[in-house]
């Protein structure tokens, strides 16, 4: 994900701002890292360039 995306992302649970923690990036974008809610501290992974903003209980497995 491009860093500029931070402006329009929020925590899906409480809609508060997220803080970006970069683990791996290239010149264009963040490839691996975390988005952490500044309010509730929930963590959302960024893997292979894709941020996963599903709440923890929706993150795994088949559609419910």
């Amino acid at each position: 994900m491009k860093e500029s995306l931070m402006d329009i992302l929020c925590c899906p649970l409480d809609k508060q701002e997220l803080e970006l923690e970069v683990v791996r990036r290239d010149e264009e974008e963040i490839l691996d890292g975390r988005l952490v809610c500044t309010e509730c501290d929930e963590e959302y992974p960024i893997e292979e360039g894709i941020p996963n903003l599903l709440p923890p209980d929706m993150r795994e497995g088949a559609p419910a």
Binding site: L9, C10, C11, P12, I50, P51, L53, L54, M58
Partner: peptide, 8 residues
Amino acid sequence: VRSNLLDG
């Protein structure tokens, strides 16, 4: 971005 509708 992976998200349910507009949630994130």
